[in-house]
Simulated scan of single mutants.
Amino acid sequence: MVTVTAAVTEASSELIARARAGDDEAFQALTEPYRRELHVYCYRMLGSVQDAEDALQETMLAAWQGLAAFEQRASLRTWLYRIATNRCLNTRRTAARRPATQWSVPGVEPPEPTRLGEVAWLEPYPDSLLDEAADAPPGPEARYEQSESVSLAFVTALQLLPPRQVAVLVLRDVLGFPAREVAAMLDATVESVNSALKRARAALRRRPPRAQHEPAPPAGSAAEDAIVAKFVNAYESADLDALVALLTDDVFISMPPMPFEYEGLSAARDFCALFLGTGREYVLVPTRANGQPAFGLYLRADGVCRATSLLAITLAGNRVCALSRFDGSVLPRFGLPQSLPDGP
């Protein structure tokens, strides 16, 4: 094992030397193993796939330009996370966050929302990118499972925390970096990192409690397939009663970047009735987002099925406890077209 470790270190040192001399291929070989996990990290920090891509590109540019200053006292991975953290903090602090949008569903008047959401901007994260992520195993101090740490509910909650607390919480509780490494990344003391972590945890605990649900069935399992099939059949056949029967009593519906939110069966029924009771016919194309089933939603009209949105659902046992409707502009990230032929 010592020999292998020494060989890896020697190889890395050689790549660093070549990259410092201007070898772009050597730099790519050094950083490519970390690109996907850094992208997921930036997404957790920013809640937007596009913002995460921008932050990742800025990170790689800064790493390329600053490689001469990399003293190898910390690992290359830790050094890259330090750069990415500072880029995300800058975005959270200074960039104009996208505002909420008005209701934009043609021909449909919104029911009175239960409340208006605090997070105006949030994008879904394709599971295909999660599968490609080269996440290192979380450190021993990590508190969150991978699936929980990319859930829409968790990423939404992160957007409500101050930027520095988000960084500390994700680095410590999701990725399991030691406090001293996080302190070095943030140019802070261990004491200040521990204090920020306590405040972040407390803020998450203060969020309005939701009912305890059964765990979601494993991805790709027969149990998941069964509930997904029932959901698709109810939606495509416009069977409102069958759809509502699949929802938990405290089901939660959100529509970022529109702030309208609906909670509970009564509000959910009114909301779903608007879409299913207007003579509209839908086709649902399955995909996955944030570790849960999702669908490209297509409206059938004039011989074509045109994309309207992406619908992500959160499962609890054999029920659906949350639905999130996103604008159709996100569909290309999931490999889904803007229209489908209407036919067998």
Rank of each mutant, 00 (worst) to 15 (best):
L299S: 09
L297E: 09
L276I: 01
A268F: 07
P286N: 08
S324H: 08
V330W: 01
E281Y: 08
L311Q: 12
A273S: 13
T308F: 09
S266M: 05
A301Y: 10
G296Y: 02
A312G: 10
L310F: 11
L323T: 04
V283L: 14
A267Q: 11
G279P: 12
G317D: 03
V304L: 07
F271C: 05
A267G: 04
E263Q: 13
V283F: 12
E263V: 06
F295K: 01
V320T: 13
S266I: 12
I313N: 00
R325W: 14
L274A: 10
Y298K: 10
D270K: 08
A301F: 12
V320Q: 01
C321Q: 10
Y298S: 07
G264M: 05
F275E: 01
L323G: 05
G317H: 10
D327V: 09
Y262D: 11
A273E: 14
G291F: 06
P259D: 10
R280E: 05
L315W: 07
G277N: 12
V320D: 00
D270A: 07
S324K: 01
R325F: 14
G303N: 08
L265S: 09
G317C: 08
A273Y: 05
G264K: 10
A307S: 14
P259I: 02
R300T: 15
C321R: 15
L331F: 02
C305D: 15
L284Q: 10
D327A: 04
L299K: 08
E261Y: 02
L331P: 03
A294F: 07
L297T: 15
D270N: 07
V285G: 00
R300A: 12
Y262L: 06
D270W: 00
F326Y: 14
A301E: 15
G277Q: 13
R288I: 01
D327R: 00
F275C: 02
P286T: 14
A273N: 12
R269P: 02
P259M: 10
L297N: 12
F275D: 00
F271S: 03
G291P: 08
D327N: 07
G296I: 12
L284C: 06
E261C: 13
Y298N: 09
Y282W: 14
A268P: 08
E263N: 03
A316D: 01
C305V: 15
E281M: 11
R288L: 03
L331W: 03
R306W: 09
G328Q: 04
C321D: 08
F275K: 02
A294W: 04
G279Y: 11
F295T: 00
C321I: 01
E263M: 05
L310P: 06
A273P: 03
T287R: 08
Q292M: 07
P286H: 04
C321M: 04
N290A: 09
C305E: 13
L315Y: 06
R319D: 07
P259G: 09
L284W: 09
P293S: 04
